[in-house]
Write a protein that binds this DNA or RNA. Structure first.
Lengths: 157, 157
DNA sequence: ATATGTGCAAATTCTTTGCATTAGA
DNA sequence: TCTAATGCAAAGAATTTGCACATAT
């Protein structure tokens, strides 16, 4: 199904995406190691953002030390391959950074489920901030609420 | 040495604001203690969001233990008097919650300065999320960049 | 061959908790 | 008075660091 093409035009071709990511890593002077490859593969396949602990638990048992997950993630983040999310509970979570396709999350405060929201309202915002004299503008935006399921599940009031 | 002046009617009616906040506290069944009063006063006077450590350092020396700052802040947050900000560096910061007047921050990645942005782009966003079935919708939005000063200061390229 | 990456253990940092004491209503 | 709040010490949780060994290039 998938070809190992290097051209970065495919959006959801897993194989090419992994290859491209590995190329970026190598380009930045980093080595391709089992943990890094496994993490990239995992982050590309699975959806939600994962904490370091969740990532480690999802990797094949014994593939690497928890500490290595932290170090690999740091490398992947520097390289721009991975994006860090902050759900405000003191735990950082990470997801694959799909290029320029910016998106955000809706986190249910009751069941902690995460839904992806493909709309980004902040383009105008960033533009405004740039006009205020800022360079290299980025932003983080997370939305919190109680999902429909959880509202049905427990109707205390 | 600390500037311990109490008279400060510059922007908003500090006195009334403090009194109102204390009333909210009491209403919620909490006692008015020196640390709580001092924290509210401090958070109403000073601008930027402060970490627990910064808060403690800004209080009159010896007024209370650092732990008490954490505990007071927790109470103030529950009561809705204080809002927690997350600048993504693993440290939570707090600011006085000025009612419904929602605003956001622009954090300089170089000098860590914080500017307040009084515009909120997320009203439409929250509405959309509510239409998706979520209740009790809130959001966090922080903007990061390099401020004009820091761009001038070091021009590497 | 050699520098980069990893494992293990221990350290750091921020925050929370237990319990006796203090103080607000 | 009588319970909620505080101080101190110690625990907890997430993440980082030091150093010897392993491994990708």
């Amino acid at each position: 199904m998938e070809h190992t093409e290097h051209a970065d035009h495919g959006e959801h071709c897993s194989e090419g995406q992994l290859a491209a990511a590995l190329a970026v890593l190598k380009e930045a002077g980093h080595r391709i190691t089992a943990p890094r490859r496994a993490l990239l593969e995992l982050l590309q396949k699975e959806h939600g953002p994962f904490s370091a602990d969740e990532l480690h638990r999802r990797l094949p048992t014994g593939l690497c030390d928890p500490v290595t997950v932290y170090r690999c993630i740091a490398t992947l983040e520097e390289t721009g391959l991975v994006r860090r999310c902050d759900f405000g509970d003191g735990i950082y979570r990470y997801e694959f950074n799909t290029g320029e396709h910016h998106h955000h999350h809706i986190i249910c405060r009751a069941c902690a489920s995460v839904k992806t929201l493909d709309v980004c309202f902040a383009d105008g915002l960033e533009r405004m901030v740039r006009q205020m004299g800022y360079a290299n503008v980025t932003h983080t935006l997370e939305i919190f609420g109680i999902c429909a399921e959880c509202q049905k599940a427990r109707r205390p009031l």
